[in-house]
Design a protein around this nucleic acid. Structure first.
Length: 468
DNA sequence: ATGTGC
């Protein structure tokens, strides 16, 4: 048995080496060349029958994956008109975000979608966009900050138990902000996510694990924050009595690790769809039944777990410093894709890019700006919204527009009026650059119920391009 | 959002 036999059967590329390796295994157990060639022809003609196991499984997987890639390359044409989708808070949404959502709803793999009231323009899918696809995942449908998420810890302390200076010191000591930052080596935490077997299963992940270990427990830049504030719970819920509690709220993501996964697989997806309409180029997808699609799915989910681990460490550090055990915790990812079954029974991939999962009964967190209230919400499971809600107030000004329209004094006046202490923060994150959270919440009363209100008091963020 | 390639 040699390479000529293999290529004569029509195998090419990676399949040649896999076929040869399998043939050698069969030769070793005494099967004749003629018989092996017969078996290989059968794998070639019906690879799907061999993928589940046996000596030909790797070859069969390569063949089915190649078929899927070829299919993907052919699907380059957009639907002539977008599939219909519902919009919440249409009066709050700029036209550019609608246009982006329209393009997403023209993709051949799209099945359903919805736009949340905090929606604004992003890369590819708008922020606040929810998109259900069939058999495919879109890296830019999840976003660059894979697994970006919120976490709230309710502490067994009165809201006024800590002075402003003490709170500020806690935040300075136990949080780290900014692109590329990590904790000092001796101060670095560990977490079970760093020992996840998935890190060893892809070259990309093996390469990124050290960076992830360095940055664990940190917050990023942009709109990420860690803040102390008062949680007002009007009625018993979350396993707690009604009342006011000291609470910590954090917004963080998967840091450099997730960003590199996103950039890598976006390029892979674009390479897979060379003919895709340029209008949808940033929405290039990966079929889930390809090696590439499976690879992204694994890396994306690892980044999702890693982002939540960052929150875990932030909250654990703060709680330990206070000698307090949180009474309750709520968390949710708002940049991720999930497998979900539509009411008609079809299994789809639901991308939430800046959207909170809101299945009936599920708790979630919808923050306002650095100086506005945030809300603990409970999902109502609205099928037309694909069980989703907004992930925040949403920008009404882009970063550059905010820096043009506002200055430090505007932000300082806003903070002073509300009694908020800010560490770091840039004019681009000014509360005035965001939609009014009360209006955004009002537009989605059929998506979530409000459980509690969080009022920030001491906020830490990264320093912006123009500091406050 | 990231932290480096365009």
């Amino acid at each position: 048995m040699n390479g000529k036999h293999i290529t004569k059967l029509g195998f090419g590329g990676r399949a040649i080496a896999l076929a040869l390796a399998a043939a050698k295994v069969r030769e070793r157990v005494g099967i004749s060349t003629q018989e092996i060639l017969g078996e290989l022809a059968s794998v070639r003609d019906h690879p799907e029958a061999y993928v589940t196991g046996g000596v030909y499984a790797d070859l069969a997987a390569e063949l089915t994956s190649r078929e899927a890639r070829a299919r993907a390359a052919r699907q380059a044409t957009l639907r002539p008109t977008p599939l219909p989708y519902r919009v919440w808070g249409e009066d709050l949404i700029e036209p550019g975000a609608r246009t982006q959502m329209d393009v997403a709803m023209q993709l051949p793999v799209s099945r359903a979608g919805a736009l949340m009231p905090d929606a604004h323009v992003g890369y590819g899918l708008p922020i606040g966009g929810v998109l259900a696809t069939e058999g495919a995942v879109i890296p830019y449908g999840v976003g660059v900050d894979i697994g970006c998420s919120m976490m709230l810890s309710v502490l067994p302390l009165r809201p006024d138990a800590l002075g402003t200076d003490e709170t500020r010191k806690l935040l300075m000591k136990h949080t780290r902000f900014g692109a590329g930052v990590s904790f000092e080596k001796s101060f670095r935490g560990d977490h079970e996510v760093l020992h996840d077997p998935a890190w060893r299963e892809q070259a990309l992940l093996r390469h990124l694990r050290d960076k992830a270990a360095e940055q664990i427990g940190t917050s990023g830049s942009g709109n990420h924050f860690v803040e102390f504030g008062t949680l007002h719970l009007p009625a018993p819920d979350l396993g707690l009595e009604a009342g006011d509690y000291l609470a910590v709220l954090s917004h963080s993501g998967s840091r450099g690790f997730g960003a590199q996964v996103a950039n890598h697989y976006t390029k892979v997806a674009q390479t897979l769809h060379p003919q895709l309409d340029p209008a949808a180029r940033k929405l290039a997808w990966l079929p889930l039944d390809t090696e590439e699609g499976e690879g992204y799915w694994q890396a994306m989910n690892l980044a999702g777990r890693y982002a939540l681990a960052n929150h875990d460490l932030i909250h654990a550090r703060i709680a330990r410093a206070l000698g307090a055990e949180p009474l309750a915790q709520v968390s949710n990812s708002h940049n991720l894709a999930w497998k979900q079954v539509l009411p008609d029974g079809e299994e789809v991939i639901v991308h939430r890019k800046g959207a909170t999962p809101a299945e009936a009964g599920r708790l979630g967190l919808i923050p306002g700006s650095m100086a506005d209230p945030g809300f603990v919400v409970r999902g109502r499971g609205n099928a037309e919204a694909l069980d989703s809600a907004s992930h925040g107030a949403g920008r009404q000004m882009g970063r550059k527009a905010a820096e043009r329209a506002l200055n430090k004094r505007d932000v300082q006046a806003y903070l002073k009026e509300r009694g908020i202490t800010l560490i770091g923060g840039g004019v681009d994150e000014a509360p005035q650059a965001y939609k009014r959270i009360e209006e955004v919440i009002a537009r989605q009363r059929d998506l979530v119920d409000v459980v509690a209100e969080f009022r920030p008091r001491v906020v830490r963020m990264d320093t912006g391009h123009e500091d406050v």
